[in-house]
Design a binder for these strands. Structure first.
Lengths: 216, 216
DNA sequence: GACTTTGGTTACTCAGGCGTAACCCTACGC
DNA sequence: GCGTAGGGTTACGCCTGAGTAACCAAAGTC
């Protein structure tokens, strides 16, 4: 095979901003499939339709690249949630909207977010990064609970609040995993189910009491 | 430094069964700290006080070793839980005992189980293995819920049951993570908090209703 | 139309770490 | 007392994959 004659320029030479996004897309995809270590920079570069040195030039080392992915996806997710749950609504409505936004996001980014998120746990370099992101989420949920409690003139220890929020976030993440593994599942319905278990608890669920959205 | 004269035999030459357990102990420890890929067989062998070829001779390749760890720890955990939650108790009591056993186990194996468990998610070779284990757990919880429902003459779709169970398991795992990261936290208290959120739900929690163990 | 910046490439270097070949030696069976 | 199996070692082969050096060419710029 001869050297490729420059007959077809094949639309190369894109501006940096565009290429960076393409690289991040590819990175998210490959990291998701393979995990951080098993993913190779060559494969990511290949998938982005670019050569490896460009990835290094734009996004830095493998670790930095992974963190960049985490940041981009994390920010997108937080924005989706924050935009949905207005603070002046009743607690259940806020929880519901937050959950809906979250599962909607995960549903739309199946192979993107959920799996990337899975990877970050465990690998120490990113655990911190991840903990920060989850921490923000836990804080939001804890804040929501606290707000609702104060409105009723009650108060609860910070640890209790944190742990409950943590459990809620954990359950939600877990269902996000489930959703990522069940492509046929409906995000909206999953959100409803999550809402039921989170808001009502097993006891009331067993009694046949169910929760459903006010706005059908 | 001269070749080590065989003056101090330093208690070597242990039977296979013993060495295998030592190796597994070391492997769990190192895999937990470093993650599957970042862990090196040399370090594991070193930590077990043995040389690398012995590890290969007894436990096989790195992947096989990891699976062996997963199996041992997983089996221990399932036994701990199964031994605690007798099927002829009321649902909340069974849930409570199961949770207590689970958090007790995690508390006792902090750096062991929880982190190992974290690693296995994401790395495809083990995701299946892990999914099986979690599947068993989800099944147990779903079975429990189903049992309780039938006792009240009601019935619910299999998917609903599975998702609720999944959420419960996820929340519990999440708190197990939290527990692993908070060495000062009390497993028993964590179990109680988990019970509160799982059994009562956010709504009742916000109303000031709380659950507490019958047997103080 | 020369000069420079920016987007792009090929073809390496180099280290870490899995897995193994080739050996060694002590305890036990007989 | 002698063979053999099982517990143990050192030292290496070798491949994968991160990161880089050196170079190339199209768009702007003046």
């Amino acid at each position: 095979m001869l050297a490729r004659v420059s007959s077809t320029p094949t639309f190369k030479r894109l501006p940096r901003a565009v290429r960076e996004q393409q690289m991040l897309d590819a990175a998210v995809k490959v990291f998701s499939r393979r995990g951080f270590h098993a993913a190779s920079m060559d494969e990511i570069a290949d998938d982005a339709g670019i050569s490896k040195p460009m990835v290094y030039a734009y996004l830095g080392t493998k670790e930095e690249l992974f963190v960049a992915c985490l940041h981009r996806e994390g920010t997108r997710m937080m924005e989706a949630i924050a935009g949905a749950a207005a603070p002046d609504l009743p607690a259940d409505e806020r929880l519901w909207r937050g959950l809906r936004a979250f599962f909607g996001f995960v549903g739309a980014h199946r192979d993107g977010w959920a799996v990337l998120y899975r990877q970050a746990r465990g690998e120490q370099p990113f655990a911190a990064e991840l903990a920060t992101m989850r921490g923000r989420l836990v804080e939001v949920v804890a804040g929501m609970l606290d707000h609702a409690l104060r409105a009723k003139g009650r108060e609860v220890g910070a640890t209790d609040l944190e742990v409950v929020a943590y459990a809620l976030v954990g359950a939600t993440e877990s269902l996000a995993d489930w959703l990522a593994d069940h492509p046929e599942a409906d995000p909206e319905k999953t959100a409803t189910r999550m809402m039921n278990v989170a808001w009502l608890g097993a006891d009331q669920l067993l009694r046949g009491i169910t929760w459903h959205p006010r706005t059908p």
